[in-house]
Nucleic acid binder design. Structure first.
Lengths: 356, 356
DNA sequence: CCGACTTTGTCAAGTCTCTTGCCTAAGCCG
DNA sequence: CGGCTTAGGCAAGAGACTTGACAAAGTCGG
């Protein structure tokens, strides 16, 4: 209820993170650069850096050019000082990767789900992590997991995940127990938003919405530089909003949800109804690009509905950066343009938007 | 760009605020209670409390019952240790009040705007503050101002306010200069949300949306315990969202905005069209309560549109508490019920909602 | 009623971490 | 080569929390 008290160790940890973040964003830097950037004294920075070097988190990489005085010793984040494991528990397969501190993917493994769910799916997670850990020397910092569904990030519990048939599953604690490292479990859209924030966007935006469209539709919302999860960890369950009052019934129980209009699953089904040759996502994309009129119509309708919803979101939250990620990106620029157009028409202000 | 460094003074300030907050929320408490609540040691709490008493912010209020040991010395926030001035720059009048630290209103003054705008309106603000300060002894902690329009809270600048004809007005700095105390300027809906968070809701929620419906429609969004302002300080400009594609033109340039459907101004105008005796807000409320069919129809349609939009918001943000404030509250429970019904119909989960 | 036990509040010493002031190393420049 | 500038580090100091001990002021059982 009340936040944590402040203490000396927290101060130190905070400042260490400050140094690490500065180094992550602008490396290489000298100790003096860091002092200027963080506002700390050179002495403090030297001390903090000493600790971080002892921990193997940063390293010296030779000397830089002098600007009229002693040449600085340049520092950077030690790429392989720690490794992380990231898992994406998709609907058809579980993907996992070993990543270093710069975000480079060192090893990547996909395991097909093949219809497994419940406890068998949990076993598959263990299998995946075991495979990733084999042959990796660097100390493991932690494991991050993105899964579809409603997830209690604080406790690492999967509240509810349809496809995997998981409910109230304490996935985080179980993995933590087995491997002895911190585990973060998050909704896949939320995880995508955090990843964008941490590795891709420069300068680091304060507010960012990442909309992930695959078989479902979900959004990760970054607000004031933090991930926003909502009261029930379900923020961004963007798919189950009805722009209109009618439409196809949705698996959530209501009708006309965005997910029944704009998800890849819905698009493929709608396309198949008019063009039986379209049976999967690549087929849909191909038909769209080939200009099959009925398919284009369906996809562009979806784009409009999506754009409307995005416009709504932009209008209410006044967020400048909205990213679209996921398989829909394959539909290309003109599809995105339709989304953009529709979003702009329903929002009042001038708003820069990036899409990917 | 980078956050502030952490320092000892920050630690102390943080812990003092921790003590103050605990005391604000649960007073009276003893030092030992505070130590248990905050996790600090009794010694630290004693020290922090000493400082706060010296500053006149908290005070001892006798001894409490013992529970097997020495009886505790109870503490509470000194109500009049500081006074604050709050201003609400409405569309028809400027209201101001002197408030103590418990939130009690000690003095309240209204000055009619009488069509003044631009510089004359600024003068009226000074007049109002002068009147409030006259005869108040306690030291002034600061001035808080809620104004309609888009406001840059960080710099205290009114970016744009239609009714007052203010644009890029550095209101905060000007008042700060004149009175020598910190000034916070915020969008009126944002201010209302912060006020709810600080004084009214218990336990203090993490996420809260306050929708203020008066002549316009605006929302203040509290997320992760902080006010969310959006990239351009325009978060919660809830009124200019079109639930449908058509409808009456809005002053924002588009059509069918929520403000043209659900604001008090719109309701009164729509009601007057069918029932010429309705000319103002009280008249509208009276007609509604009297059961005039056409007026009820209009108001309930508005409630449905509003509910839909709220449902949307709840669905996307997964926020549990939504409050409606402003003159619409006069329409009573059955109007609110219609909003609730409509909101529930467009949102998937079970969601507790309070309305006022 | 008295002694044992609890609880509260405080004091002194200790520890952690940042800062200040000074010093050395190392390079540029005239 | 000497003066100046920049980088990095060391020692002492200051601020704030913690630990351990203690007096004050209760309750409670015999």
């Amino acid at each position: 209820m009340l936040p944590e008290k402040a203490t000396h160790q927290q101060t130190r940890t905070f400042n260490q993170q400050l140094v690490l973040r500065a180094l992550h964003d602008h490396s290489p830097l000298s100790r003096a650069d860091l002092a200027r950037l963080t506002g700390l004294t050179r002495t403090s920075v030297g001390d903090l850096v000493g600790g971080l070097i002892d921990d193997g988190l940063i390293e010296e990489v030779g000397r830089g050019r002098s600007s009229g005085g002693k040449s600085p010793i340049l520092l950077r984040v030690a790429p392989d000082g720690r490794h992380l494991i990231g898992l994406d528990l998709g609907e058809a397969q579980f993907s996992g990767a070993v990543v270093n501190l710069r975000g480079d993917i060192l090893l990547s493994i996909d395991l097909p789900l093949e219809g497994r769910n419940g406890e068998a799916a949990v076993e598959l997670v263990f299998e995946l992590v075991d495979a990733l850990r084999a042959g990796d020397q660097s100390p493991l910092l932690g494991i991050g997991i993105g899964a579809p569904g409603v997830i209690d990030t604080d406790s690492g519990t999967v509240r509810w995940s349809v496809n995997l048939d998981w409910a109230e599953l304490a996935l985080g604690p179980r993995i933590e127990l087995r491997y002895g490292v911190p585990v973060v479990v998050a909704n896949d859209s939320h995880a995508a938003a955090l990843a964008e924030l941490t590795f891709h966007r420069r300068p680091r935006p304060n507010n960012l919405i990442v909309i992930k469209i695959g078989r479902g539709v979900g959004a990760g919302i970054i607000v004031n530089g933090q991930l926003f999860q909502g009261d029930g960890y379900g923020a961004g369950e963007f798919g189950h909003i009805s722009p209109g009052d009618d439409g196809a019934p949705c698996r959530c129980g209501r009708k006309g949800c965005l997910e029944t209009l704009a998800s890849m699953r819905a698009l493929v089904e709608a396309a198949r109804a008019v063009e039986p040759t379209v049976t999967d996502e690549p087929g849909l994309v191909a038909a769209f690009k080939a200009g099959v009129a009925a398919v284009r119509q369906i996809a562009l309708d979806a784009a409009r509905a999506l754009g409307l919803a995005i416009g709504w979101l932009i209008g209410v939250l006044n967020v400048r950066q909205v990213l679209l990620v996921g398989p829909v990106a394959a539909l290309g620029e003109d599809w995105l343009d339709e989304v953009r157009r529709s979003a702009h028409s329903s929002v009042m202000a001038l708003l820069a938007r990036d899409t990917q």
